[in-house]
Amino acid sequence: MIRPASRIASAAAAPALVVVLLATLPVWLGHHPYYVNIASQILLWAVAALALNVLVGYAGLVSLGHAALLAMAGYTVGLLLQAGYGHLAADLGAIAVTLAASAVFAVLALRSTGVGFLMITLALGQIVWGIAYRWAGLTNGDNGISLAARPAPFGLSLAGAEAFYYTALLIFLMALVSMRILVRSPFGASLAGTRDQPRRMTALGFNVWLIRFLAFLASGFWSGVAGLLYVYYHQFIAPPAAALTASAEILLMVISGGAATLLGPIAGAAIVVIMKNVASAYIERWNLVLGVIFILIISFMPEGLVPGSVRLARAAWVWLRARLPGREGRYTQERIS
């Protein structure tokens, strides 16, 4: 199974090209802070969508409470910074809190699967939102928590749009690579197995519950990382970050792009962030647009935009070929019928 060097080169060429494109993106965007910031938003939401995709796509467990995990990381950073801790301590604390919360979410939600799992995560997410909103003594309620400044790791300030973009890009690439390794690993295979045939997996000797639990922790970890990016990007966090709408947006990214694919959630994040920015420039009704997109995608492309577009393109190609004159066209038509 030794692959020729040329094939390895061509297999490595496409990702390398994309990385180069992403690394030079600020140049293509004319160093315009507004566009660079939108690119940063896409990257941060892509990390969140990749995190949720571990559960939705690979474990077959649909969570509607993931924004709460993201927000919890953001709030922890805000509170620890307020309490006088440094950025590193605050970030580590935030990840620890998010992991602990993920463990609690997982233990409760994994009492059930399918629709029950979705309901429990939704209820848990709303409770976190309720705490953020009502426990004003801790969270400052509706007014939220502001961050004085972005961190400056190794003396490099992230205050500027481009400095932040490169940080987000680095973290995004780390998330993407780790996801790729995870889904191709034996553990990834075990996880997909629990999604498709949990009963058989148990009979084969797999601990289905523990596999799902660990997947939830992995998902929670990257949600926490996305939460760090979120709170540093906005330098502000408030209850809407934990709301059901936010959880639904992340889920929309995963589903619209294509669950259980690596690129789907990223495409979904790009679509949702761009739509949101475009929509909010013209109309105030983002939720309306969100709802309509949801319904359109579910009705016409239930498998997601990336696999869905491939399917539609194929169908269109077959349709075209069938209508072209000549033997080949007839042959195709016969084969279809």
Binding site: V62, L64, G114, V115, L118, T245, A248, L251, I255, R285, N287, L288, L290, G291, V292, I293, F294, I295, I298, S299, P302
Partner: peptide, 21 residues
């Protein structure tokens, strides 16, 4: 198809919320 059904109701929830607003 449970998941699409759930998402459909969620989509309508957002639409109703915005129309009411």
């Amino acid at each position: 198809q449970v998941l699409p059904q759930v998402l459909l109701t969620l989509g309508f929830a957002f639409i109703i919320a915005d129309v009411c607003l």
